[in-house]
Amino acid sequence: MREITYTEAIREALSEAMREDESVFIMGEDIGVYGGAFGVTRGMLEEFGPERIRLTPISESAIAGAAVGAAITGMRPVFELQFSDFITIALDQIVNQAAKIHYMYGGNVTIPLVMRTPGGSGTGAAAQHSQSLENWTAHIPGLIVIQPSTAYDAKGLLHSAIANNNPVMFYEHKLCYRTKGDVPEGKYFIPIGVADIKRSGKDISVIATSYMVHKALEAAEILAKEGIDIEIVDPRTLVPLDKKTIIDSVKKTGRALVVTEAVKRSGFSSELAAVISEEESFDYLDHPIVRLAGAETPIPYEPNLEKLAVPQVNDIVEACRKIMAAK
């Protein structure tokens, strides 16, 4: 199998879907000649032309809403929100319209759209371009929420997202874009709602999302040398959540560490901890659930402060050591 980047994997999924289905098209700011702020759609204008690689004005509400209208009337739009922080401007169309229309209309219409958007910090873009707000959409019934961490997952999940008949929020991570992985050529689907064990282990279940999966994998190498064998569970989709895989892992290890980049308070880490504690996994816990998550601050600009605002490899290592030390 060949190795390609997360960015290339997403572009492949988009291109394959567009070649196969005329109703799939893309809208977004700077996605044409520029190729998108992070280069995801680079070269696609040349292949598909400006009708289907549709450059939009800077109008997030109209972009999201036009996707809703196009979806209701028979298209399968994918729109790129340049930074996930800008969802603030598009939220009415996502929360009040896209998420609710299927239900509110008695199931008489479907809304097959995908919002692709990069979240996360680590690029020095500061407080308005670095947040992890995926939990906002995970809270809304009617939306599907996906957070792929690897190139392989990104391609397979994006194919599933485009083929899905619901509004899908597809959260990419800026630091994932340059990561590489083995990715099959051609179309394949990763089912929505199935978690993935990124590393098997027996001591602690580390449930990590998005870029935190990579940090957890690094931490695992360090911990392995100390005889601590962590299992890394990547939920991959937040809604629907594969509770069973998480619960089974915790039942096996008896310890749970939840790691997300999003702010701890009322973030998705709270949901993950709640699931572990209200299900049968609770009876297997040998240690209280530990959460590592974003500091309750805006993301600062200065690089050292920025790093302090989100969990780092060393934080994961330390947390695991502490859990294992508490006998």
Partner: peptide, 16 residues
Amino acid sequence: GGYPIAVGAALTARLK
């Protein structure tokens, strides 16, 4: 709330 949705429907007419 209906403005962008109407634009989207018109976009469908255009694309199809």
